[in-house]
Amino acid sequence: MKTRLIFTTLALISALAVQAADGIRYQAQPAGNKVRIEGTSTAHDWEMEGTLIGGFVEFESAVQFDTAQATIPGLKDKKLAIKSLVIVPVRSVKSDAKAMAQVMDGLMQDALKEADFKKIECRISELTFKEPHAAGKPFEFDAAGELAIAGVTNKVTFPVTIDVVEKDKLKITGSAPVKMTAYGVKPPAPSFGLGLMKCGDDVKVIFDWNIAKTATTASK
């Protein structure tokens, strides 16, 4: 009974917090997501892919996305201040190589210190609107925030687009360059057969992420 009371209180506090922020919260949707890591190596290019992206994005209540319009209500000096958390479980990103895929998965998980840091987390705090916007096309932004990989957090900026998939549903697409060593990650250098393969330091993280207005905020 006591436990239930505590949970109820916590839930109420959380709900009040959302309302106090006066924001519109979009929550991660399970379907249609894709995160893809593209890298290079001394042998050949490589790719890893996952479908799990969790988290949320919270816009100020004035913000409305309508791709038919030239601009977005709620922009301040061409910027949108947002709260967000993007989560990708490290082990969910897997190699699609025809051979040795599991070896690649293991190497990457070791390199990213998955045992200690199970998630890649990104917190975007600001979106800078890129003009002009062509009607019917996704809105384009430069995103700025923090990216945490393997226990190291760095400031990042990268381009994203926001498209309206259907009412109250958005799709965020982006591509972020990442230097592995900047996060204390040693590029994997596995020894296969007769030779040593060394992965390049620079990788590109490409993602498609679907979010939807949560019931609480949608009713506002």
């Binding site: 991660a28 949707q29 399970p30 379907a31 479908t51 799990l52 992206i53 969790g54 988290g55 989560i87 479980p89 082990r91 969910s92």
Partner: peptide, 25 residues
């Protein structure tokens, strides 16, 4: 592991969508 990760991110209320998403894994 995939199911655990999914539940942590999205919860387990929608079993049908979860089953569909597990197809890839």
């Amino acid at each position: 592991a995939a199911v655990d990760d999914y539940i942590q991110l999205y919860g387990d209320s929608d079993q049908k969508t979860m089953a569909q998403q597990m197809q890839t894994a």
